[in-house]
Design a protein around this nucleic acid. Structure first.
Lengths: 352, 352
DNA sequence: CTGAAAGCGCTAACAG
DNA sequence: CTGTTAGCGCTTTCAG
């Protein structure tokens, strides 16, 4: 900028004014400055600019895994909103690791991001207190912050969604509904388990621990749990899977267990024959996923993009000075019947 | 930092030394400084730090769409490598818009990112020249830079992959193979079309323009093109789809045209019956996708994560001072037979 | 081992 | 309309 000023024969400040389109610069002078800028290939250093101005015009986003469709949709929505507000976006994946989440957040804070959107992996966010004190704002998405951390949060209605999915299966005659969930320490997994239990209770059905399998969405673990479930003396006739990954891996596991892939819905909306590969099981999955429509898999859909958009909107509201009380948004889920969740249980065999 | 220095009764520089673990500080002094840091909740401002040091320890990534699985995998790999090098990552989606690509890149450059990884939407990258001159490094991924821009690039073997996919269908007896590609202005689409043509030529088959449909991967457009293709007097018996989105939307379109969803591979590896929904068509898709295995869809797989990793590694090599000649990596693709690509054409009806 | 001074590139505040 | 001065928070350089 100094060089430009020298080249144009003006003061530093005049160059600054021109570069920022500030009013009150003689057109001729501005022209001279512009010429110098072009000649020297000058580009403003926004790093220095933000240092001076106090705001970095950047926000940080910590998600679980950028490669996961759920979080990448959320991320995309946040990006859109950020750009719309003239903000650049730092992204990082916590990999469901609390320490890594903290490191990322603190790294973003060290760069003095104006705000944060966090899908928390950990449950202790006391490390954020100094940052909050320093004026950094944060909005939590998909999961709430740990106890003792007051911050806005945008969630899906996990309990309601799981309840609806379970009730849907029960309404179609199922009395033995299994739940395949994520690790129970994960907020959404615990909430969905709660919804599942509530639906059972509402229908007067007993809660049977043997019908519940919580764990990571890994093929080996799901295969083992499914084998156990299906081999039991009183096996489930329906499955509620706790998230997108789990649903997909369950379909895969079932295909290998029953010896064929899950079948599609035939022409009509809801076929009355069993989709091959589900082995006669009914299935409702939490989270919509690509090709679920073709496969005829009934799901409880979240809207990850809306989750991200809402969180980002909220953050920018805060950054604009909104100092209202901490809020908690809960976005609705939507049950999409596609066949796999509308199948009745097989006729009851007599026992003995 | 001033406050900390005052509180600890030392000079500014001593605090700086402690914060950066620089050697040559009395243990007792360091302790006093640490105490002051904790008491005041001090956190170093990395923005100021990078301004002074010249390097921002951040890189910018411009992809087409963060919500697309292909680019989100690439993105995740870049992120991993960046973090490994102590770098933070700015992300932005160009949405296949050259102007937006440029704006994002220049915004990143204004923040003085150390380097860039770009999946270009545009074909004119002269706007980068001043940045290169200023020392910013860039690596292109998935697609090469426009003419006149010298930069490293990491690609998939698009020609070879498309050639292999087409040859695979021809080897299974098909002589009427259609190609459903992306917009021809997109580098990868053009390359894959070239591979398709090469395979035809190698097999002594004519290139029939009526068998080629290039355009955006949108349901309506694909439905129209497929309807036209299948309704022709000499319709194709096999399809090569030009990317993941197109494959998925083609499956969807075919399902709605033929009145049923595509069917799964049955127990054996390659069923000899037509997967329902493909209407007897054989299909090879460019790009692997979630559940392609269960649906039995043969694909030419790219490795987006490796694309990202390679590009990032290359960038950090450059940032470390490697000034070798500009390189062009081409990663291999892999044909994964799953059934849909191994179906023979239907017995030839006599015409007339 | 510690400190004072200068300055990274920019903008805010106040002159002229 | 233009310029000067100070300083954002840090590190570099050099001197104690």
């Amino acid at each position: 900028m100094n060089d430009v000023a020298a080249a144009a024969g003006v003061a530093l400040k005049t160059v600054s004014r021109v570069v920022n389109n500030e009013p009150g610069v003689n057109a001729a002078t501005a022209l001279r400055v512009h010429a110098a800028i072009d000649r020297l290939g000058y580009r403003r250093n926004d790093s220095a600019r933000t240092l001076r101005r106090g705001r970095t015009a950047s926000i940080g986003l910590v998600i679980e895994d950028a490669a996961d469709v759920f979080y990448s949709s959320l991320s995309r929505a946040v990006e859109e909103t950020a750009l719309h507000h003239g903000c650049l976006l730092f992204t990082g994946s916590s990999q469901e690791d609390a320490a890594r989440e903290r490191d990322l957040v603190l790294a973003f804070c060290a760069r003095r991001v104006d705000g944060l959107i966090i899908v928390p992996a950990g449950t202790d966010h006391t490390y954020l207190a100094p940052e909050f004190e320093a004026g950094t704002r944060a909005v939590f998405a998909d999961r709430p912050p740990g106890a003792g951390c007051e911050a806005d949060v945008v969630l899906s209605d996990n309990v309601g969604g799981a309840r609806a999915g379970t009730a849907h299966l029960i309404a179609h005659g199922h009395r033995r509904v299994a739940f395949l969930g994520d690790l129970p320490r994960i907020f959404t997994a615990a909430e969905r388990l709660r919804g599942y239990r509530e639906a059972l209770a509402a229908a007067g059905l007993p809660y049977d621990e043997d019908l519940v399998a919580m764990g990571p969405a890994e093929p080996a673990r799901l295969r083992a749990d499914l084998t156990r479930l299906l081999g039991a003396s009183d096996p489930p006739t329906a499955l509620l899977t706790g998230n997108g990954r789990t649903t997909v891996e369950t379909l895969r596991a079932l295909a290998s267990i029953t010896g064929s892939a899950p079948g599609p819905v035939t022409t009509g909306a809801f076929p009355d024959r069993a989709p091959p590969g589900l082995g006669g099981l009914a299935l409702v999955g939490f989270d919509d996923f690509e090709l679920a429509d073709l496969l005829g898999v009934t799901v409880v859909a979240q809207d990850p993009a809306r989750l991200g958009r809402t969180a980002a909107d909220l953050l920018f509201l805060r950054l604009a000075g909104d100092d209202g009380p901490v809020t908690r948004f809960e976005l609705p889920t939507r049950l999409i019947p596609r066949g796999s969740g509308e199948r009745p249980p097989p006729p009851r065999r007599d026992r003995g």
